[in-house]
Design a protein around this nucleic acid. Structure first.
Lengths: 222, 222
DNA sequence: ATCTTCTTGTGAAGCATTTCACATAGGTTC
DNA sequence: GAACCTATGTGAAATGCTTCACAAGAAGAT
């Protein structure tokens, strides 16, 4: 049992549930290597420090994937989550900004593994334009709109300084791209139908700092 | 008015509030450059796509920083948030794994800006050990526990493959480090008094993927 | 075939977070 | 110095998310 979601249902699904789906996917991928045929919500929960009820509830939003008394079939569930997350296909990704972070991302294996293929690189630095990174030639940022369109890019990763990010994003939007992963430390303005996710690495360190200074206990399920 | 928090209060503060504090801090840092002397909760909210009530509530957990009818003094509030987050000081950070991501982080300016100083690098690759990255000599991972202690490292960043991360973390814990920022895609096991934050870049892409496939509308305050 | 055991799927309860709404107070103007 | 304007600070309401608790279903044992 597993239908495509209607608009009603989709909007009810919280961000946290989606993020946990990613965790389940990862955990199941690990288990697949093992001899495990099935996995219970209890085991799955333990490996990601969640509660079994949470796992079952999350999955139940999308269908009934388990067998009572037995648990969930590992490979099947993994595939179904992949389908729900939309990572059962290849996404064409462009990366803007081939600096420190940009270069690291080009070689980041987790992206490829999950179907996110960086097929295009952009920079404004003449010394970088034309150079080859992992088989991809760096394009001139001037041709951004045209090249994003011509190459049917679906997702753009922004890895440039905050000062220029908004200008570039305006062009990215012009090119019709609907999804942006932003590493620049600022809040991008985009139209309502464009999805933006921010990756703010300093923020996580700040959380650690807060936790230590205030002796904030890590939250854990009982 | 601004007291140090007692245990009662601290535990009531949610993770989301802390994360937003980081956002406020960043927004205020921007405003400081401008001619702005004060900022209202409304303006602050707008720049981070939140509601004014949220901003006021978040701040109110820590004290009364504003002036009715006027707003918040930009520089003062920025400093107070820095104090709350514990980034009004320098943190000694070690980075394990000088690969793609590790190298990028060594040069990441946002870390330095906020007081996170990477003062130590570790790797297990003989070709990297002894080499110089931005003035820091890469140490042998074998000496991890001793060197973390000797250098009074407070935060460790894990940027190694998932397969070896847990072993290293066990040593990091042995060395008495209480805060870990983890880039490896797995859930680390640590004692209750050790803080771990996970930075999972693929997860954000998965969210974008889900949003596009399911036409999930971005959530925005009205 | 029935009984036992195990674990799912899910309403309902409990808890947490966000938003509302307004009393309150500082600043400004006349 | 009174009246007006503006924006904070905060209980209370509303919303959202997590956990509980149990009926129900499936497999294996007797």
């Amino acid at each position: 049992m597993m239908a495509d979601l209607n608009a009603e249902t989709r909007n009810r699904i919280s961000e946290s549930t989606i993020r946990r789906l990613s965790l389940y996917f990862r955990a199941l991928s690990f288990l697949e290597g093992d001899e495990h045929e099935t996995v219970s919500s209890k085991e799955l929960a333990k490996s990601e420090k969640l509660t079994p009820a949470q796992v079952r509830k999350d999955l139940s939003f999308f269908g009934s994937f388990g067998t009572r008394g037995l648990g969930y079939p590992v490979t099947e569930l993994r595939d179904k989550i992949a389908r729900i997350l939309g990572i059962d296909r290849v996404w064409r990704v462009a990366l803007i900004g081939v600096g420190n972070i940009g270069s690291a991302l080009v070689s980041y294996k987790e992206f490829i593994k999950q179907g996110f293929h960086i097929v295009k690189l952009f920079d404004n630095d003449q010394r970088k334009i034309g150079s080859n990174h992992k088989g991809i030639i760096v394009s001139d940022i001037k041709d951004l709109v045209k090249e994003l369109k011509d190459d049917s890019i679906e997702i753009v990763v922004i890895a440039v300084p905050a000062t220029v990010a908004q200008y570039l994003v305006d062009d990215v939007v012009k090119a019709g791209v609907k999804a942006i992963l932003n590493f620049a430390p600022l809040n991008l303005r985009v139209p309502d139908d464009v999805h933006v996710r921010n990756e703010n690495m300093a923020m996580e360190l700040e959380y650690l700092s807060f936790a230590m200074v205030n002796d904030h206990p890590p939250r854990r399920p009982k």
